[in-house]
Write a protein that binds this DNA or RNA. Sequence first.
DNA 1: CAGTGGTCTAGACCACGAA
DNA 2: TCGTGGTCTAGACCACTGC
Lengths: 235, 235
Amino acid sequence: MLKYQKIALEMVRHITGNLQQKDKLPVIETLISHYNVSKSTIIKALKVLEDKGIIYMVRGSGIFVRGEGRKGYYNLLGVNELQEDANDNRYDLLNIMEIELICALPEVTTALGLEKNAKVYSVKYVYYLDKQVTCLEQAFLNQKIISNLDEEIALKPILKYIKDVLAIKMRFPDIYVNVDKLNAEEASFFGLNAGDPMLCKEIIYHLANGQPCCYSRAVFHYKQAKFFLKVNSPN
Amino acid sequence: MLKYQKIALEMVRHITGNLQQKDKLPVIETLISHYNVSKSTIIKALKVLEDKGIIYMVRGSGIFVRGEGRKGYYNLLGVNELQEDANDNRYDLLNIMEIELICALPEVTTALGLEKNAKVYSVKYVYYLDKQVTCLEQAFLNQKIISNLDEEIALKPILKYIKDVLAIKMRFPDIYVNVDKLNAEEASFFGLNAGDPMLCKEIIYHLANGQPCCYSRAVFHYKQAKFFLKVNSPN
DNA sequence: CAGTGGTCTAGACCACGAA
DNA sequence: TCGTGGTCTAGACCACTGC
């Protein structure tokens, strides 16, 4: 693990454990001697925290804690589908409804940049929160990249499996959000009526080399479709 | 303007004007001699583009163009409300329905961290796309920070005014997204029915020193509530 | 194993905020 | 004016990709 990453991690732990919104961090000079690294490395670590929305740095003044988001809202980037971060208690139960190897439909071949009739794994997930269905997800994985998928693998954090076991590096997801009315089938899962609102979140995951490898479409119960996003100044 | 910002800007222009998805950029050594700056400065400029989702860098391989998002979707960060970026043709007409100086309601005092009964400007906007209402927005601005607001000012990009005329620096918005049913009043604006879906996007803008100064709540027609977000590897 | 992106350093200098 | 964040440099060295 790189120096700046390690420092960033330590800082996150220290902040979340001990500090509150608007608390001031030590000045950079202090951090330099504390971690015994160069200024650039400290700043790089701090930038990581700034990008995550944990701190903000004010020139001429200091470094401050940015504080929590609104309660009941989930991090839009804390990509909960495909169980990337299972610590996040966005749901308390997960089931796989179906898992099969199919020929990709046009929608999927486009999203994943595949040849016609290429094979993909389709995995349908149901997420529960307080014993209610909160999210329906269907994920399509390029079989050329992720082969030998089975239920046991798919039930564990699948992106972690891809990273750790297959040693494939994921990068930059593209996220699409839109709103629509529930169809009858979806509505029955949620215990809602057809025509009720829903939020649809689509994600296309790319590998380190830019190739798309996974396309996911998740539909959320509108009462639980609450997301936040901490942005930084675009400069 | 800083070196790396200037270089980033030039690069963006060059890419959007001449290159396509997956095209390869010159190697860093070349960029160094072309722009006549140090390696760190080039990398800093490239990071700006990477954060914007314009390029991706692959170690050992090269720097590539990431390509456009899906058609018909708008950048979730291209914060169109309050007209930050008027070039973006997310709407083709804008009206102010109402502008007044009022005592902040509890919801607003919380969002802006104000004292009870503090004064805020309330500005109600209506956005049109293809002669249809596409978005209703109500913005609340802390009067202690933005004083003397009038219709003429509010109709121009208001964040630009705050930055350029008042010389106040904006930073890190917090964005909240949720989905709900339209009430009767909102529905009548959109030409939809009460109970139809809507997307609500709330933004709290903070100043450079961390103080919240503006709270905006925008409701979108569900057929036009399509947003994308280009994320980078969290490292 | 060559080529390319990326980390890390030490230090000069700049820009902004607060007192 | 001082303290603090931030830019920029030159160069050593590391880590990954693809031939």
